[in-house]
């Protein structure tokens, strides 16, 4: 479905010294700077998977997406999507894919979304019956029936994003590229988008490639993660394996009504709050239940919780200390 071999993308930009003299100098002398956005990237994604591309800003996620969709040309290496070379951009290939960019609108800004949908219907040669059925189904799922006839520029970001998704799925793509689809959305809108993608995937089984800085998106949708750091692939595997990337310990936090004895927790790398009423510990899966029972028995616990999003902590640690990946 998607296959890359030794894929490389370099960007060349030019340095300019500040001020008017710098501008004059740049007329005849410019220093070129080459940035390796993607380096010797190998990847294979079979059909039907939801894969999360993770990495810090500038890691190369979006560059990869752009190469997969044929928007930019690789500097070297091979990329094949659905048996096509994306950069040839033949119309047959374009009919099979869809791209949603959270930061860029695909819909026409000055007209109601329904007009854009009609245009997309014509571009993808969708029959009247299919169009009607898909619009009704998706509008209901996304709860946007009332928004279809409002000018896109008048919609909120969340509303617009729902319609963007709808527009991109109208032709039933075999691969859906989602580049930060929930960026800037409130929690309710994020949930709605996630639920929609999940139910759409369950029904039609397209391959989904997702980039997001929100780990809730990744946790809720992806079965496989690919981590990109500095343009290189640093991890590729199931989400469960990623969660155990820096050890399999669980993170548990306790809140106490009165200050407990700190010695009791010393074996589990405790992190105490300033007032000493809250502690966070790292504990193995096996020890988790007996230890929690002991704590509940011995101290006045007002609340306790296990970590909900281990991948968020792991991402944070890897972004701060990328060398941890070398130690694996």
């Amino acid at each position: 479905m998607i296959k890359t071999q030794q894929l490389v993308k370099n960007f060349v930009s030019y340095k300019k010294k500040p001020g008017i003299m710098g501008s004059i100098e740049s007329l005849w002398k410019r220093e070129a700077v080459t940035k390796n956005a993607v380096e010797r990237f190998d990847l294979e994604i079979p059909s039907g998977q939801i894969v999360g591309l993770l990495g810090p800003n500038g890691a190369g996620k979006t560059t990869l997406m752009k190469m997969f969709t044929g928007i930019i040309v690789p500097s070297s290496g091979e990329v094949e999507v659905l048996g096509h070379k994306p950069f040839d951009r033949d119309k047959d290939f374009r009919r099979k894919i869809a791209l949603v960019m959270g930061q860029k609108s695909q819909l026409w800004w000055d007209i109601p979304a329904m007009d854009s949908l009609h245009l997309i219907k014509a571009y993808y040669e969708i029959s009247d019956a299919d169009f009607k059925e898909r619009v009704e189904l998706m509008a209901e799922l996304l709860n946007v029936e009332e928004l279809l006839h409002i000018h896109v520029r008048r919609l909120s970001l969340g509303e617009r994003m729902k319609l963007e998704l709808m527009a991109s799925l109208l032709h039933k793509p075999e691969i859906l590229f989602l580049d930060e689809p929930t960026i800037g959305l409130d929690l309710i809108a994020q949930d709605a988008i996630r639920d929609f993608i999940k139910s759409y995937h369950a029904k039609y089984k397209p391959t989904v490639i997702l980039t997001s800085h929100y780990m809730q998106d990744v946790q809720a949708l992806c079965s496989r993660l690919v981590l990109i750091m500095g343009g290189k692939k640093s991890f590729d595997g199931p989400i469960g394996e990623f969660e155990r990337l820096l050890g399999s310990d669980k993170i548990v936090s306790f809140n106490f009504s009165s200050e407990p004895s700190r010695d009791f927790f010393n074996a589990f790398q405790p992190k105490w709050s300033d007032n000493g009423l809250q502690v966070e510990i790292a504990i193995s899966k096996e020890e988790l239940c007996p230890f929690c029972a002991k704590v509940l028995e011995q101290f006045e616990v007002s609340d306790f919780q296990t970590e909900k999003l281990p991948i968020e902590r792991i991402m944070k640690e890897l972004m701060m200390r990328p060398e941890l990946l070398n130690d694996r």
Binding site: I111, S116, Y123
Partner: peptide
């Protein structure tokens, strides 16, 4: 005909956009 329809629909969108800012 499908291809002509694409052109026609695009022209329609363009008309609508231009008319939005008469």
């Amino acid at each position: 005909i499908a291809n002509l329809n694409k052109w026609f629909q695009t022209m329609q969108i363009s008309w609508t956009t231009l008319m939005a800012y008469r």
